[in-house]
Write a protein that binds this DNA or RNA. Structure first.
Length: 671
DNA sequence: ACGCCGCGTATTTTT
DNA sequence: TACGCGGCGT
């Protein structure tokens, strides 16, 4: 049976039932199409109810896109109750419904990466004098958690002083989290998985609740996530995993592309469908990508092809210096912009590491070209958003010290650092939380009357709010709080310009809107705390940003380009030690292979034109270094590439370029 | 509360 | 080289 608009492989993946399915979906081969059509097909043709189906992704963005595209195939009624969520959000739902079995109180808070970091920092400081808490222990602890290694076991298997320190910290960290009634991001996956593994009743319940699972970006699952999937799927194994081992670029973070293989071992009946037709790129581009990735070992052979014609050859631009490279790239952009009437949003400049973007930003600014840099963390850590959420967190969960500290002096309440330090020390000694400690007699003795007065004013008010929380809808409640504390004035004072303050206040209003939306979407029983927990997992403002019609050139790392596509792609800094990155080469062959996949991901982002550049010298850490072109350039097929320095340009073409350039400048002057 | 200075550090980071 | 952060001084 063929489904309308799908090619035979997509169609067979869509309609396959009766055994687990692995869809090896090459870049641009329509994997989201398959997942969304499969969901629709399961509901329409296979007798599944929407609420029995869960599609699981890694990012909010992917979940959002999948949800939207599924809804375009189904009526609202048909799709009712469908789960399309990230691993973390799914974990949160399981935790929420099993909260008592798990031994957490219902008003728990979710601690984001920053919250976790500050807890660890605090602990490292308090316990071991100063033992500088390098971020490394955070990674080590996270890895242990995902491998179900508890702090005691960690201490035993720790192999070096760093790991020993991390293990000690780990135990304290876990106790602290529990005391705050807090869960970190890892807990959202680890706790449900452990529960499903150890508790048969819960396992059966969830296996009956979710009868069909679809997993997106399967190659990025870590050991714990795979366990979770397997437990949910049970012996029935009604799952479709969609992934591409060639696009596995997160192994360094615990992703196990071997899970593709494991699936075959664990489910011998596994059916494998390969999606090899690429709908994105021209043949020259795809051919180069295939040729490059053929240098990696493969579990499953796969060769992408395209029906879009040869297109343009890949242009390789050797450049004298990094500055020169940036200028040449921008010149190329201007050329396409005018000659092919390309828009800024049609271009992407991709690089291995963030700092490489700076140079390009500068040159783009000089040329008055609009651009945006994605990545970095600026978006997740918008202070105004976190402040707003922290107020709710504290009210929903009075033991949440991280939230307490965040809002206690925001806006300024003349509660100084030393007061808070004394409060922290006291609470720590007494094994209680900050809010509770602030009222204890023993603490009152340690600080001045004035400080006590200010602190009491705050804590009394918070406690009043805690008592009255049930009298309001969540969004009314938080709007009132933000209003009462004069947060808008505070932003005005804190921001560099009134315009900036306005934008930040808009972000706060966006939070209100989301709270209202989540409240309305829920069954009406959702508490304020549950809504905030949910919101901690969302990229609230990301959506905002997409809505705006930003016609801008995109600058980003190769990592964050995964899943995206652009007509014109520039991969820059393609030099030895940058890509492949020097640090990835030291240990084993696998490091190099992942770098190669990263290059592969970059190449396959391009629809029409791919340009690769490298510099012969580049200043790094203050000194001028001579750079070698990346070995990956040698792995591209000569027939698909054109070297810029050998490019033949006819006199007419030259004239045309010059005209184009002038016209462009004139157009820009008019603007 | 703010700003300055000097020191250390420099790969990627879905939640 | 450059940038962010902790410490310290005003």
């Amino acid at each position: 049976m063929n489904i309308e608009g799908l090619n035979p492989q997509q169609s067979s993946a869509t309609t396959h039932l009766g055994s687990p399915l692995l869809v090896l979906a090459g870049a641009g081969s329509g994997k989201t199409r398959v997942i969304t059509h499969k969901i629709a097909w399961l509901i329409r043709n296979a007798g599944y109810a929407a609420y029995q189906i869960a599609a699981i992704t890694f990012t909010n963005k992917a979940a959002r896109e999948m949800k939207e595209r599924t809804l375009s195939l189904l009526s609202r009624q048909e799709a009712k109750g469908l789960t399309v969520s990230t691993f973390h959000t799914l974990g949160l739902s399981i935790i929420r419904s099993e909260i008592e079995t798990l031994g957490y109180k219902s008003g728990f808070s979710i601690f984001d990466a920053q919250d976790s970091a500050s807890i660890l920092k605090e602990l490292a400081y308090k316990e071991d004098n100063l033992a500088d808490e390098d971020t490394e222990s955070r990674w080590i602890i996270s890895r242990w958690k995902n491998d179900f290694v508890n702090p005691e076991q960690a201490l035993q298997i720790a192999e070096n002083p760093k790991e020993v320190q991390a293990a000690i910290l780990y135990g304290k960290y876990q106790r602290q989290l529990k005391a705050y009634n807090g869960l970190d991001f890892d807990d959202l996956i680890v706790l449900p998985t452990q529960l499903l593994e150890n508790n048969e009743a819960v396992r059966t319940k969830w296996q009956n609740r979710l009868r069909y699972l679809l997993i997106d970006e399967y190659q990025d699952t870590n050991a714990c996530q795979y366990r979770m999937i397997k437990l949910l799927a049970g012996v029935r194994g009604e799952i479709t995993a969609v992934g591409d081992d060639d696009q596995s670029i997160y192994a360094w973070r615990g992703a196990q592309p071997e899970n593709l293989n494991l699936l075959q071992q664990d489910y011998p009946m596994l059916k494998v469908v390969k999606l090899e037709q690429n709908y994105r790129s021209t043949e020259f581009i795809l051919g180069a990508a295939n040729h490059l990735i053929a240098n990696n070992p493969h579990l499953f052979d796969k060769k992408l092809w395209s029906a879009l014609g040869y297109g343009e050859k890949i242009l390789i631009m050797p450049c004298r210096t990094a500055e020169h490279e940036a200028e040449k790239v921008i010149t190329e952009i201007l050329k396409y912009k005018f000659r092919a009437r390309a828009e800024p949003e049609d271009f992407a400049i991709l690089y291995r590491s963030n700092h490489q973007g700076k140079l390009f930003e500068r040159v783009l600014r000089e040329n008055n070209l609009p651009y945006r840099v994605t990545g970095g963390q600026s978006f997740f850590e918008r202070a105004e958003v976190k402040d707003t959420l922290a107020y709710i967190r504290l009210i929903a969960n009075p033991t949440d010290d991280a939230a307490f500290l965040r809002v206690v002096n925001t806006p300024k309440r003349e509660i100084g650092l030393s007061t808070l330090e004394k409060l922290g020390t006291y609470a720590y000694e007494r094994g209680t939380t900050l809010l509770a400690a602030s009222h204890e007699f023993g603490f009152a003795q340690r600080i001045s009357n004035r400080a006590k007065l200010n602190l009491d004013r705050f804590t009394d008010w918070i406690e009043h709010l805690i008592r009255s929380v049930d009298n309001f809808t969540p969004h009314e409640f938080i709007r009132q709080i933000i209003n009462d504390i004069g947060y808008e004035d505070y932003l005005l004072n804190m921001s560099s310009s009134p315009k900036m303050a306005e934008r930040r206040m808009d972000n706060v209003k966006e939070v209100f809107k989301w709270i209202e939306r989540l409240y309305d979407d829920g069954d009406g029983k959702e508490t304020l705390g549950e809504i905030v927990a949910h919101m901690t997992l969302m990229d609230l403002l990301e959506r905002n940003r997409e809505d705006k019609d930003n016609n801008e050139i995109t600058l980003m790392t190769l990592h964050s380009s995964k899943g995206l596509e652009y007509p014109y792609v520039f991969i820059v800094g393609v030099e030895e030690d940058l890509i492949p990155h020097a640090n990835s080469l030291s240990e084993n062959e696998e490091g190099l292979e992942e770098e190669r996949r990263l290059m592969y991901v970059g190449i396959t982002r391009a629809k029409q034109q791919l340009t690769i550049s490298y510099a012969k010298t580049r200043s790094r850490y203050g000194e001028e270094l001579t750079c070698e072109p990346s070995r990956f350039l040698d792995e591209l097929p000569a027939a698909n590439i054109e070297w810029e320095d050998k490019r033949q340009i006819s006199p007419e073409q030259k004239q045309e370029n010059a005209d184009a350039y002038m016209k462009d400048i004139l157009a820009m002057l008019e603007e």
